[in-house]
Design a binder for these strands. Sequence first.
DNA 1: TAAAATTCTTGATTTAAATCAATTTTATCA
DNA 2: TGATAAAATTGATTTAAATCAAGAATTTTA
Lengths: 216, 216
Amino acid sequence: MTKYSPIACLSKAALFTDLPIELKEKLVTVSEHQQKFPKGSIIRQPDDGKDGMIVIDQGKAKVYNLSKDGKEVVLGILQKGDIEGQQHLFKQSESENFVEAVEDTWVCSINRVDFQNLLQKTPDLSLKLLNNFGEKLVAIEHNSVLRNTLDAKERILAYLNDLANEQGKNEVKLELKKKDLASYLGITPETFSRKLKELEKDGKIEVHGRWIKMER
Amino acid sequence: MTKYSPIACLSKAALFTDLPIELKEKLVTVSEHQQKFPKGSIIRQPDDGKDGMIVIDQGKAKVYNLSKDGKEVVLGILQKGDIEGQQHLFKQSESENFVEAVEDTWVCSINRVDFQNLLQKTPDLSLKLLNNFGEKLVAIEHNSVLRNTLDAKERILAYLNDLANEQGKNEVKLELKKKDLASYLGITPETFSRKLKELEKDGKIEVHGRWIKMER
DNA sequence: TAAAATTCTTGATTTAAATCAATTTTATCA
DNA sequence: TGATAAAATTGATTTAAATCAAGAATTTTA
């Protein structure tokens, strides 16, 4: 692996990619770097006293919450360059969600107060951030519509198609355990398994373990 | 009704309430005012060529999208002071949702380009907006967890409780037709009707037409 | 690499909510 | 106001997905 660079880590976040180098250098001064979380460890959780946001430098994490009866509800999947908790950069508030490393994961993080100071001086950054928020809101609303209009099978297919489009390939790799993916899609592992098989029988996909080939 | 004031309209939005008067005056110069939409008319819809956000001055509107088979999926309910479409203030993007007046409604609106110019000059405003976004994100995620962990009855009760807490009363008025509320909660009108009756039988609520009294 | 643990799959059964259908109630407007 | 339309309720039936259960496959770890 190449040598670690704080700027490289921050730059992985779309939010920061295009910032001028001077701004990135300032960001480095208000951020923590190279924090390692072994697979299975908790990166963030409710009442952990941490604020601010994290950037995934390497690895993979899942964002989830617990239902009343203690079941995980997976809300999102984080990969290299993804950010989480940006909403806590502004409000004195802590995450209500758990973020758990699903493989060995390195993150860098930015805390609220430091970031706010920087923000005051850099309106550019605000605009970037606002834009990012806008995108996230649109994505969540989109997701909400999907959840309410598609049945389990359609939902899986829509998810796989999104994945294929994002990656520009027609062969996608499932980045989470199927049980977590199922939770993310709002269904049980059993249903996920069955519907995946049906989709294969329908000739819509070809499943090879964790790899799925989309037919089009 | 008192005389219409653009500043009063903008001030209804929590986003702008606490802005210094000079900023509000600037906002007035980049916004349109006193647009009337009769009950049943469409305030915004996909591909209407409008960008930017709206503030509800008077009246009530529902935000919805259409499923593949043409059914409405209600995503939100807008009332006096609520804002919609703030994400379009940043990204050149148009609403993917419909906003429909469910009673005679007045709105004021702010367009993207004008607003961005103002934003460049007023970092205060950015911070406010970022904060508002953060809240909205948290609220949406919260909702998402509820949807995925509660059954129809619990969801209705949770909604009514939220409503009662917001208004600080224990008697709440349903602000939408029940069929729209049902859609918002992700259930059918029939289920809504039945579960409401069950909740009454359980002694959790008392229904009087559009008014519902919460027992606690 | 073997043992233990977790995840995945498949089948049988149950269940919550949707759908279909028919009134009743409420709202709209000519 | 009365006529018409829309919304809400209630009942009967269907259905998609959950649950329960048990074995197969995979992953973890000692």
